[in-house]
Amino acid sequence: MSPSDFLVIPFDEWVTAFVRGWLVPNFRPFFRAVQVPITQVLNGLDAFFAFVPMLLTTAAFALLALKFAGRGMAIFTIVGFVFIDLIGLWPQTMATLAMIITSVLFCAVIGIPLGILAARNEMTWKVLRPTLDVMQTIPSFVYLVPIVMLFGVGMAPGIIATVIFALPPIVRLTNLGIRNVRGDLIEAAEAFGSTPLQMLFEVQLPLAMRTIMAGLNQTLMLALSMVVIAALIGAGGLGLTVNTGLGRLDVGQATAGGVGIVILAIVLDRITQGFGVQNKVPSISLRQTLVSMFRPRASTPVLNGKAA
C-alpha cells in the first residue's frame, strides 16, 4: 500500500515535454547565440596558447608564481610544466588551460555583478541564495543532457556546463565580502556624501577584494574539477585524455591525463591564492625576525615606527 497505487506523476515525461517540446524548438536560436561570445573568447585563447612556445609560457607562469607564491612555487611550476611536456601532453594542457580561463572569465563577469547586486538588495539575495544552492547540489551529469540538447556538443557547451558548476562560490563570496565591509566605513563614506557608485568603487569593492579573490580561486578549482566531465560532451584537452584512457582501460593514459590536471591545478591555485593576499600590509620576514632576536637590547623590528 503506497500513494503510487492511486496516483502516478509522470514527472520525467513532463520534463521531456517541456525541454523537447517547448524549450528546444522555441529557444534554440537564442541558445546558439549565447554560445557566440564564449566561442570567440575560447578560440582566441586557444589560438594564443597554441601559438606561444612552450618555454615562453612556462617562463611566464614561473614568473607569476615567483611574484604571487614564492620561489618554491616558481621552481615547481618549471619542473611540472617540463614534465607535462615530456609526457607529451602539452597541447592538451594548453587546450584545458584556455577552457579554464574562459570559464573563470565568464564566471567572474556574471558572478561578481550578481554578488554585488545580492549584497545591496535583500530581495535579490533571497532569490539568488536557493538558486545557488540548487546549482551546487545538482549532480553535473543531470544537466549535461539538456545542455547537449540546447547547445549541441563541443567546447562551448562544455564551458557552459563548467560555468553553471563553478559560478556559485564567486557570487557567494562577492556577496559576503561586500556585506562584511565594516559598518562604520560605510557610514563614513556615506557621511561624506558618496553616491552609491562611489561607495561601491571607492570603499566596498576594494575592501571586499580579498574575499572576492578567494571566491575566484574557489571558482577556478571547481572549473578544474569539471574538466573530465565536460570532456564527456565534447570539450577536449586533458579531460579527453582521461576519458579515452578510461574507455580503453588504458591505465597509463588516464593517469598521465590526471597528473597533468593536478599539476595545472596546483600552479593555478597557488598563483590565484596569492592575488588576494597582495594588498596585505608587508609582514616582517623570517630573516628580519631572526636578526632582531640576536641583536643586543632586543629591539623589535618596527616597519614604520609605530609612535604612540
Binding site: D184, A188, A191, F192, G193, E202, V203, P206, L207, N279
Partner: peptide, 21 residues
C-alpha cells in the same frame, strides 16, 4: 542631503573609520 553632507557637515567617528586600503 548628499549636497549638504559634501559641503556643510562632516563627521568624526568613534572607531576612526579610516579606510584601511
Amino acid at each position: 542631503l548628499r549636497d549638504i553632507r559634501r559641503n556643510k557637515i562632516a563627521m568624526v567617528f568613534q572607531h576612526f573609520a579610516l579606510f584601511p586600503h
